[in-house]
């Protein structure tokens, strides 16, 4: 049984693409066949976060225009053969595709993969409508900030009106110390406001930038950072495993964890 999951947020820059790349890689490492679909037409980035940009030849638009075959457009990850990418066109504008075509595309992909993860563009316009068109479930990414949560709420409403009822939440970029000093909403605060199921919490982590620079998702690291471990846990939860949420606060404050962080960061 394959799953078509859209990763979306409303607001831009909250970590949709980072989450898609890491979850895709983590699921592939768990032995699932995964295809990542970049639905951000005209502003593609998913290939960069995966370090696959130099290997993109064809895009989803070429497939839909019958200028290439589907498997020609799929970029297979050399590090992790279970993972494939279908890149978005970078040159054409966002209206070059319809929701019907997108639905068909993800449906065909779902016959060949366990997971089809669709990376949605920001906003709630055509690009977003196309991204959610074929999805059966959704992962909302938000940060504990007022504008991100507001936009997430809006997107949840839109998903529900599109009959996508399996909606789970990732709270990204949490800063436990700020929550402790009452200067940031806690995960519980965000859940109370949005009333959706929590899939995972990702702490704010500088390693995200480093991993983006390298084109290597966090979960590929030999000793993944806290954020990388959080993504691995989310992948496990998607697979139905009962994995407790990381105690981010303790991890940040414990002396040994700090020491370990300092030692590993120096390299």
């Amino acid at each position: 049984m394959s799953r078509i999951v859209v990763v979306t947020s409303g607001k831009g820059g909250v970590g949709k693409t980072t989450s898609t790349a890491n979850l895709g890689m983590a699921l592939a490492r768990l032995g699932r066949k995964v295809v990542l679909v970049d639905a951000d037409f005209g502003l593609r980035n998913l290939d960069l976060l995966l370090g696959l940009e130099s290997r993109v030849v064809y895009t989803s638009l070429d497939v839909l225009n019958r200028e290439c075959k589907l498997d020609q457009a799929l970029v297979k990850d050399k590090r992790q053969p279970n993972l494939s990418l279908l890149a978005a066109p970078q040159t054409r504008n966002k209206t070059a595709i319809t929701a019907v075509a997108m639905t068909k595309l993800v449906e065909v992909l779902s016959h060949h993969f366990h997971y089809v993860l669709v990376d949605s563009p920001a906003g709630i316009e055509t690009g977003f409508q196309n991204a959610i068109a074929g999805a059966k479930e959704a992962i909302i990414v938000t940060t504990p900030e007022i504008s991100a949560v507001r936009d997430a709420d809006r997107v949840i409403g839109l998903l529900e009106s599109h009959r996508i009822r399996d909606i789970k939440l990732i709270v990204n970029r949490l800063r436990p110390a700020m929550v402790k000093s009452n200067d940031m909403m806690s995960v519980e605060d965000v859940l109370e406001i949005l009333s959706v199921k929590l899939l995972g919490v990702i702490p704010d982590d500088e390693q995200v930038i480093v991993s983006t620079n390298r084109g290597e998702p966090l979960v590929l690291a030999e000793k993944p950072s806290l954020a990388g471990r959080a993504y691995q846990n989310i992948a496990g939860r998607l697979e139905g495993q009962d994995i407790p949420f990381l105690d981010l606060d303790e991890a940040n404050r414990s002396f040994l964890a700090r020491l370990w962080k300092t030692l590993t960061a120096k390299r």
């Binding site: 900030e145 007022i146 949560v149 507001r150 709420d153 929550v179 009452n182 200067d183 940031m184 909403m185 806690s186 605060d189 109370e192 406001i193």
Partner: peptide, 13 residues
């Protein structure tokens, strides 16, 4: 500020 942002969010939502 945490309580303030929650109130503001509940209001706008």
């Amino acid at each position: 500020s945490r309580d303030r942002v929650k109130q503001r969010l509940k209001f706008i939502l």
